[in-house]
């Protein structure tokens, strides 16, 4: 493939993503942000984002797929425990979870 093809791909993907953002703006301009439709869209966005995060952890397509599900779930539990233990400090949860995952992989393989 030539460089032009790669540029077309990058710019095409940027435009194709921007379409969704622009459609969002179009919808925002037309709806009442205290109405039922807005609440429904909000619920859809929460469901989508939560689903994406769930997929990234439980059904990953990244290098995490090579890590066993037991290690991933154990690390999430440790992260949540650290988060609540340290008075809802995000840093505590994230660091505990990341270190646990690396540690468990190094230890159990």
């Amino acid at each position: 493939m030539g460089a032009e093809t790669f540029w077309i791909i990058v710019l095409g993907c940027a435009a194709a993503t921007f379409i969704w953002r622009a459609l969002g703006v179009v919808v925002v301009k037309r709806i009442d942000s205290s109405g039922a439709f807005f609440q429904w869209v909000t619920c859809v966005s929460y469901a989508m984002v939560a689903g994406l995060v769930f997929r990234m952890i439980i059904l990953p397509e990244s290098q995490l797929a090579a890590v066993s599900i037991e290690i991933r779930v154990a690390s999430v539990i440790i992260a949540f425990a650290a988060y609540f233990l340290f008075r809802r400090r995000l840093v505590a949860g994230v660091v505990a979870g990341g270190v646990s995952l690396s540690g468990l992989v190094a230890w159990l393989g």
Binding site: A16, W20, L23, V27, I31, F38, V44
Partner: peptide, 24 residues
């Protein structure tokens, strides 16, 4: 190219509801 751009767009479709719920 078409398949690539389409797949990228689909994977980022969440921006529509995210923008709607966020901007207000």
């Amino acid at each position: 190219i078409i398949a690539i751009v389409f797949a990228c767009s689909l994977a980022n479709a969440r921006f529509l509801p995210m923008v709607v719920s966020f901007v207000p």
